[in-house]
């Protein structure tokens, strides 16, 4: 397993450099004046300065590789410019919005993976009968409804009509408590902070606000994981070792849940990386619709306001995040499959 992870870690720098080059080449598509804002740390730097002087000072007309060198050394120190739309540096904006996104993303991941796998196993066991067809049609429909349409309809029904699941992260009374001096923000994950402060009203309120966005962001990936699990299970259930297990007198549900599922999860884990990719994209829409002040909403707002440093820096951060998540996926892959672990 060590050598496997080391090997993964070795390509990491290549991908990292590649991603920075990709983002940098997008920066270079902008003119020198538009590019300027990605280099400053404070709008005060722009005051009382001749812009042309600043452009020369920052070397924005130099050959691209010199600019890349300067830019990347800034990025390495966390300097990604000033975000007009957030009113802070891109890094600060990103860090302050990270907890909301992480809370939503992590909460979505669990039901997606567990629910999707269970449904997929269910469909494969009922292969070709009524429930298999129903779950298949539902999956294709789930796969076809755009997240933003689904989210808007959720809002319309569950907030507008029923009043159950309000948007944003907390009600205003709860927000007041969270921002008050008596409440310690350990993590800025409101559920966890609520538990740590033993304030269960906050926990309840945070959960209530998360239900609709979690469902919205999950629906697509539920369908996805379910379909992958199903076809993987169908493939595995035909393997020789399943027949061996049956020939030993193993009970059918042990055959399915012990012998088949663990093997069937291997391809599911490989596509989990692709799912996380989409899940991160889905955050943009879900956070925008449900007014959750996270990274996704930040990206969408920045894009609307042509806040170049924020979108570029945000993209870079999302790229890093994804690489990190993929590393976790690789590790869990090794845990499930001894052929990789013992390599």
């Amino acid at each position: 397993m060590i050598s496997y992870i080391v090997r993964r870690l070795l390509i990491l720098p290549i991908i990292l450099i590649g991603v920075t080059l990709l983002v940098f080449s997008m920066i270079m598509m902008l003119g020198p004046y538009e590019r300027l804002s990605t280099y400053i740390k404070d709008p005060a730097e722009l005051k009382n300065v001749d812009v042309d002087v600043l452009v020369t000072k920052l070397g924005l007309n130099d050959p691209w590789y010199e600019q890349y060198g300067r830019w990347i050394s800034g990025v390495a120190r966390g300097d990604m410019g000033w975000s007009e739309s957030a009113g802070s540096t891109v890094t600060q904006a990103f860090l302050s919005r990270f907890p909301a996104t992480a809370e939503l993303g992590l909460l979505a991941l669990l039901p997606v993976v567990v629910g999707g796998v269970i449904l997929g196993v269910f469909a494969s066991v009922h292969h070709n009968d009524f429930w298999d067809h129903v779950s298949r049609v539902l999956a294709i429909i789930g796969w076809s409804v755009p997240t933003f349409v689904f989210g808007l309809i959720m809002l319309m029904i569950f907030y507008g009509t029923l009043g159950w699941f309000p948007p944003s992260r907390l009600d205003s009374w709860a927000l007041d408590i969270v921002n008050s001096a008596g409440f310690i923000n350990y993590t800025n994950f409101f559920i966890i902070d609520g538990l740590l402060n033993a304030n269960f009203a906050i926990v309840g309120n945070a959960i209530r606000h998360l239900v609709a966005p979690v469902i919205t962001i999950s629906i697509l990936w539920w369908a996805f994981i379910m379909r992958i699990t199903r076809s993987s299970m169908l493939e595995i259930l035909r393997r020789d070792y399943i027949r061996t297990a049956r020939a030993k007198g193993v009970k059918e549900n042990v055959v399915v849940y012990k012998h088949a599922v663990r093997n069937a999860l291997i391809p599911v884990v490989t596509v989990a990386g692709r799912m996380v990719l989409g899940l991160l994209g889905g955050l943009v829409i879900t956070e925008t619709i449900f007014n959750i002040k996270g990274l996704g909403q930040f990206m969408a707002q920045a894009a609307q306001q042509l806040d170049y440093p924020a979108v570029l820096g945000g993209t870079l951060y999302f790229g890093f995040l994804l690489i990190l998540i993929n590393l976790c996926v690789d590790v869990s892959y090794a845990i499930i499959d001894p052929r990789i672990r013992l390599e």
Binding site: D240, Y241, T244, D337, P338
Partner: peptide, 9 residues
């Protein structure tokens, strides 16, 4: 098929 008749995990 001894190669495939045992469960790999």
């Amino acid at each position: 098929e001894p190669m495939t008749s045992l469960n790999p995990v």
